[in-house]
Write a protein that binds this DNA or RNA. Structure first.
Lengths: 238, 238
DNA sequence: TCGTAAGTGGACGACATCGTCCGTTTGAGC
DNA sequence: GCTCAAACGGACGATGTCGTCCACTTACGA
């Protein structure tokens, strides 16, 4: 009942002491860096060390790894939200749609660690209703409808196709971190196949990825004598 | 110098004693089952238990997890190789190309665990030359060229695009195991965008995937008080 | 039938991570 | 300054996995 939730800023850093608030920020910065470098499975202790705080402090601020991941990438998620708003406001619905896809994919590509956070946001069917997300879903459907009505998006495009495309792209950048060409190329192909009207124009340059590893019977499959033995388990962790 | 490598069957199960050979088979069967259920990161001990052998036996046959993974999915890889041969032999190069993509994606979709093995086969640039793979790569290029010459595959299609597409699909089925509709839908879109001539026909039914989780600012991001705490770490492993 | 080398399985030591407990430090109000 | 609740950090017990070691078992040739 006290003046505690005066500014609607969530329960995030509300009544924290100055040092605590400072540490919270340092943890978030460290988390993004560590997750980018080692994936969101990186040991919590690594994040803590990077932030210059103890593990206890980390756990006090973020009860679970999941909470930390979500908080760390909240900013990226807001970028997505903004992109959606802008897409809806665009006079050309196809341009809006295209930019939305490109923005979301660029985030997945550039913010390493975000892709993993992204899929973590798709825990199969868990549909706990949340106003912001409900709203986003409605906006997406509206955008799609508008682009279809404008004759730019194929009429058999289904809203779930957007999720499919984003998850596929997510998988690609996870498998090939750093291969920007591959990412752009996939996005271009997808947008091309979603397009109802004329082509979107020429494709970006192809990736330099070799398909030398097409999963054809591997020559190096030997019963019990593969190449070098793998290094001692947790050797390359920070 | 003895009659040991008489039948060219690799060093796989060559001079093993009868019981050892039997156990090797049981391990491979168990590995496929366990990898499908828990991913290729599943504890080696789980595989051993499932196979009804000791860990030591497992390690004696397969020095590393990697060797086990490769051996376990060798059959699937051979299916890919066969599909490639058939594609090349097809009188209609586009049909061959399409079937190859569909076969590879169907394998990724149906054989859970294979996708992970698949990406494991793309360790960024490690191009240890292996005759079977070199051959496969050459065949793929030939197939692509033929389909382009027939006017069915867009001329700016680059061989690496095939790898990009397969990796993206791989990521999708990994994120959404069991969602066959999503997989088919993505494949249809990709083939549509690769096509130079007329459309491939109507798309398959869309996935029932909700986009309720589009990564828009998450309502449930709270500083240190997310929902339920995650379960004790390794609780759901076999 | 018997000897032996190949095969086997489980115990074990090493290691990594998790998340809590608790004694110490520090910010902020008086 | 002084007090004290809030915040801190590191040690610690629990848990889980890895891969090896070694004493026991078994297939198979003589």
């Amino acid at each position: 009942m006290v003046a505690e939730s005066s500014r609607m800023r969530g329960a995030e850093a509300g009544g924290l002491r100055a040092d605590a608030r400072r540490n919270r920020e340092r943890i978030l910065v460290a988390a993004r860096a560590v997750f980018a470098e080692h994936g969101i499975e990186a040991p919590m202790a690594t994040v803590a060390r990077r932030a210059g705080v103890g593990v206890a402090t980390l756990y006090r601020r973020f009860e679970t790894r999941d909470a930390l991941v979500r908080a760390a990438f909240a900013q990226q998620m807001e970028t997505c939200a903004r992109a959606l708003t802008e897409a809806l406001a665009d006079a050309d619905p196809w341009r809006g749609f295209r930019r939305l896809v490109e923005t979301a994919c660029a985030l997945q590509r550039e913010e390493r660690g975000f892709p993993a956070a992204f899929v973590a946001a798709f825990p199969d069917g868990t549909s706990e209703h949340a106003p912001t997300r409900d709203r986003a879903e409605r906006d997406l459907r509206t955008l799609i409808r508008k682009a279809q009505d404008a004759g730019a998006l194929r009429t058999d495009f289904h809203p779930s196709d957007l999720a499919v495309a984003l998850l596929a792209h997510c998988g690609l950048v996870t498998a090939l971190p750093g291969d920007e060409a591959a990412s752009r190329r996939l996005v271009a192909y997808l947008l091309e196949s979603f397009r109802a009207g004329p082509s979107n124009g020429p494709l970006p340059d192809p990736s330099s990825l070799s398909l030398h590893h097409f999963p054809v019977a591997a020559d190096n499959v030997r019963g019990g004598t593969s190449g070098r033995p793998s290094p001692p388990r947790g050797a390359r962790r920070a």
